[in-house]
Structure formats: C-alpha cells, structure tokens
Nucleic acid binder design. Structure first.
Length: 285
DNA sequence: AAGGATACCAACCGCGCGCCT
DNA sequence: AAGGCGCGCGGTTGGTATCCT
C-alpha cells in the first residue's frame, strides 16, 4: 500500500512565502493557536500544504526565534549535544529554545561540520583548550558575515520572527494604505516604530500581539543573552499557546528531556554562568 | 566589470511514530 | 489488531547572496 500524499498536490503552491501568506498564517495562529495543521490551509484559504504551514510557522514566524549569528556558547552546546545525541536536531533544539531545529541543522552543516573537520586535520589544536577556544570562536576565513556582525551588535543581525513579521507587515500596510509610505529601514528606531505600528495594527485586526509581547520579542533582538533566561518573557508568553520561547511541541517546559542530567547540568551551568561569553570546553568528554 | 565558485538558508520531500477508530 | 491519518523529524535541494579570479 503506497503512502498517500500528505496533501492534495493539485493547486498547492510551493516556493517562498509571500508577506500576504505570512500575515494570513500568523493571524490565524494568533487566533486559534498552533496545531491542527491539516485545518490551516482550508480555514485560511492558503494554497499551501499543511506541512508547509507548520514549517513556516515553526522555523520563521514563531515568536521568540533568534536568527542570525550563533554565539560561541551556542556553538559549544551544539557541538557537544551533537556528539552526544547525533543528528537529533529537534532534541538539540530543545536546549536552545530560541533556535529552530532547521536553523541548528543548517548551522551545523554549513559551519560546525567544517570547523570540526579542520579540527581533526589539526589535532594538536584539540589538546589545548585555550587554543581550541580560539579556534572555535575565530571567524572562518571566508564569508562569515555573521561572526563579523557579532562585534557590531547590529540589530539587524538578530532578526527575530517579529522583525520578519514587521517587515512583511510593512509591505502589507504599504499596499493596503498609502503607496508612498516608509521604505525598508533596518535601524532600531525604525524597527521600534514598526513594532508599535504592528502592535497597534494587530490589535485592530485581531491578531492580538500587544506592546508588552513585542517588547519581549525586541529584547531578543538587542539582548541576545536575555534569551537564555526564558523566564524574562514568560509572563507575556503564557497567554498565547505555542507562541513563546517554547515551541508548539511544548518540549522545553515538559519533563520529556532525554536523560542527560550530567550534560543538562553543565548546559544549565553554562547558561547561568557564562551567558554568551567565551565557550570553554568542559572536561566531560 | 563579469563570470564562476562558494556559502548560506528557506523550503521541500519522504519516512517514522503515535494516536484514533 | 490493523489500518488510516496527522504530525514531527532529518536529509536534501534550489534560489540567492557574496566572494574570488
């Protein structure tokens, strides 16, 4: 028996999502919460597969997602967790609640795998943790925009999902109102005002994202370390199911972590003690 | 300046698991 | 108990951006 397609292929749109589609999806999820993905395309009229909707939400639109460069600490966590768990990106992502499994997977494939390969080709580096740290944190020789931007603390680097929503909303509002309104801008103040616009507008159209929630989201953009303390946003996130740091799968707050108490302890200690500071190799492995 | 090479990342695809009937 | 269905996960691809020659 062949497996039936997850959704009717006829009339299903593929490829990049448009701002309009994002708006529709976000507003629907804000109203109904994530889940029941099968019903999303039919209820919203989106010509997208349910899978595509879920993916778009979890990897891009979900609030609390930190995008852009990974901190050395995050790198360290990924490396160790990957060594321990293998390519269980979803499991790894539970320890990095601001990152999506897709993001981690991409980062591993494009950056870390390469770094580790270089490590293996220069094994003398591995024996010296200070050198290792230097090696792990130095930017790769080529095309490492993220690492360069890290030093600038460029707000646009930490582009949260809210910023994405803001951007798409900006375009949406430009179309739906005056065509000569704001052009694309990336500085903090512009973002700030866009967030306020978005918040106001969202209230009007019933999406229901308040200023507090946007403030919380903004804090991820401009204070990356704050993300490690997820309690900082709990109050404003609790109300919206699956829209907080905890993804729709609810893995973070649950007790279903893998039995990694030793590692877990280290990770928690690292988070508490180091923030995004220099990664140091624990003597665990 | 232009074309090729490389890097990055959003999105797709197919499979497996678990729940429900 | 078995099959159907929906969701989640991991691997992969394709488009775009950036860098190099």
């Amino acid at each position: 028996m062949g497996r039936p397609p997850c959704c009717d292929k006829v009339g299903i749109k593929k490829g990049p999502w448009t701002p309009e589609e994002d708006i529709i999806l976000v507003s629907y999820i804000q109203e109904h919460g994530p889940g029941n993905w099968r019903a999303v395309p039919t209820n919203t009229g989106l010509l997208r597969c349910s899978k595509s909707c879920r993916l778009r939400w979890t990897n891009y639109l979900r609030p609390g997602i930190k995008r852009g460069n990974f901190t050395p600490h995050e790198e360290g966590m990924i490396i160790h967790l990957q060594a321990l768990l293998g390519n269980k990106w979803a499991a790894i992502a539970t320890y990095l609640p601001q990152r999506t499994d897709n993001d981690i997977k991409n980062y591993w494939n494009t950056h870390l795998k390469k770094k580790l390969k270089m490590m293996q080709s220069e094994p003398q580096l591995a024996g010296d943790s200070a050198t290792y740290h230097q090696f792990m944190t130095k930017p790769p020789p080529y095309g490492e925009r993220a690492a360069a931007d890290e030093n600038n603390q460029n707000p646009s680097v930490y582009a949260s999902s809210a910023e994405n929503i803001s951007k798409l909303l900006e375009g949406w509002m430009m179309r739906s109102s005056s065509p000569n309104q704001t052009s694309a801008a990336s500085n903090y103040n512009d973002d700030r005002s866009k967030f306020n616009q978005f918040s106001d507008r969202s209230q009007q159209i019933g999406i229901g994202i308040g200023h507090d929630e946007l403030d919380c989201i903004l804090s991820f953009d401009h204070n990356p370390t704050a993300g490690l303390d997820k309690s900082s946003c709990d109050s404003s996130q609790k109300g919206s199911e699956g829209s907080g740091l905890v993804d729709s799968r609810g893995k973070i707050e649950g007790d279903d972590h893998p039995p990694l108490s030793f590692l877990e302890k280290w990770l928690l200690d690292e988070s508490a003690g180091h923030g995004e500071g220099a990664m140091e190799l624990p003597s665990l492995f």
